[in-house]
């Protein structure tokens, strides 16, 4: 099975060479057809940047990006345009992602206008069907973006992204500003879309419960590197890397009676500008040893398809104990 999208040795640096921000480093990632890949990680760890590189909205400073086998790393925008109907993105911030001077209807119909040979009436009908699918009511279609709430805008963005039935959709925190019932509806919609069109999705989120619900595979990013990757069930049930363990323990239960047993991380998050030579988590890791500051831990496969980058994994001393 050929991959939908593939990143090899990907690096992204913003700003001048000497003091630029190293947003991504040595990323190897494969998105397979029809799968939902969950992407989690510290904020600022490069998740959005990775999504942008995947769709070549950014040109990476190192490595290659492949889409359905083609090396698109150096394609100019003019050439990429043909691919834009096959790949789409839901951006993180719905307030700034929509042209404030276009009506909601026009915004939802835009991808259809650009990529599909439809008559105006067909486009209108299809746009309304999309709006219904994301629960935007007809009276909202003739409004401007400034006249909708955050969650409503987010749904408009989702409608735009799924309009052309793309084969790859990057969803950057698509449900974070949605209320629970709408969120459930959207997740259902995405699952249904995947089932009917076989779209692959990269689902960036901080909500681990959502991930558990929808993702097939999970990759965890920390400071621009993938530190753990594997089948969703395994990573979420039995995380190997100490950061992933801390992340999962910090999940807030919706039950007020349940005491949270959060592993509190102490220490500074190193700046992405001058990153330490060893493990980038070492400054906060409760299990860090002296060697962690010196050696960059390699990504090793611990069980089939489940890899993690921590020096203490091979010897089995990688378990954090949550507070009682």
């Amino acid at each position: 099975m050929t991959a939908i999208a593939e990143l090899r040795g990907l690096g992204m640096r913003f700003g001048p060479m000497a003091q630029g921000v190293h947003a991504l480093q040595d990323i190897d990632l494969t998105v397979r057809p029809g799968e939902i890949l969950g992407l989690v990680g510290e904020s600022g760890s490069g998740k959005s940047t990775l999504g942008r590189c995947l769709l070549r909205l950014l040109a990476p400073t190192a490595g290659t990006v492949r889409f359905e086998g083609d090396d698109i790393t150096a394609w100019p925008e003019r050439r990429l345009r043909r691919l834009r109907s096959a790949m789409s993105m839901v951006f993180q911030d719905p307030w700034s992602a929509l042209n404030p001077r276009m009506r909601i209807r026009a915004l939802i119909e835009e991808p259809l206008l650009l990529h599909c040979a439809l008559s105006a009436a067909e486009r209108r009908a299809r746009g309304e069907a999309l709006a219904t699918a994301v629960r935007i009511s007809p009276d909202q279609l003739d409004r401007m973006p400034g006249e909708l709430s955050g969650g409503q805008l987010q749904r408009v963005c989702i409608a735009r992204a799924i309009a052309t039935n793309p084969r790859l959709i990057v969803l950057d925190e698509p449900t974070s500003s949605l209320d629970l019932s709408v969120r459930a509806g959207i997740l259902d919609l995405l699952a249904e879309l995947r089932a009917s069109t076989g779209s692959a999705m990269v689902f960036i989120t901080h909500d681990l419960a959502t991930l558990r619900l929808i993702a097939d595979r999970v990759a965890v990013l920390y400071l621009g590197r993938i530190i753990e990757e594997g089948p969703a069930g395994r990573v979420l049930a039995d995380p190997l890397h100490p950061y992933t363990q801390a992340l999962l323990s910090a999940h807030l239960s919706a039950d007020p009676a349940e005491r949270s047993r959060r592993i509190r991380l102490q220490g500074e998050i190193p700046s992405p500008i001058n990153r330490p030579p060893g493990c980038s988590f070492a400054t906060r890791c409760p299990l860090a040893e002296p060697r962690c500051n010196a050696v960059q831990p390699p990504l090793l496969e611990q069980e089939p398809g489940h890899i993690a980058a921590c020096l203490r994994v091979p010897e089995g001393s990688n378990r954090l104990v949550p507070p009682p």
């Binding site: 019932s181 419960a209 619900l213």
Partner: peptide, 17 residues
């Protein structure tokens, strides 16, 4: 409808417009 209690693909999610 907290995600922990959801099951996808059951068709009708709660709610309406």
């Amino acid at each position: 409808s907290v995600p922990e209690r959801l099951v996808l693909g059951t068709g009708k999610m709660l709610g309406g417009p």
